[in-house]
Amino acid sequence: MQEAAKKGAAAAPKGRIEIDFERCKACELCVPACPKNCIEMGRRINAGGFAAAVFARPEDCTGCAICAESCPDVCIEVWR
């Protein structure tokens, strides 16, 4: 945790994603796709019964959109 905080302080995030909580089917494909490990599986269950992925470490996001391209349900939007 401390390390992540340090990294976040050193370099400001270059982008941001939004994961559509209701559309996510918790397939986890976006998790290893993110080169900065910004995404984790969440605990909250959506209406479909899935524990949707969450944008856990926004401080490292570069807005590269690789997560969005890997998502079979097209539920990630990316801003830079």
Binding site: E18, G63, A65, D73, V74, E77, V78, W79, R80
Partner: peptide, 21 residues
Amino acid sequence: GKDRFTKKVYARPKSLVDVKS
């Protein structure tokens, strides 16, 4: 996020209907 990062670099393609598959 939208406020700080205003340029949408990835969104659903126009020809893909906005529904859950």
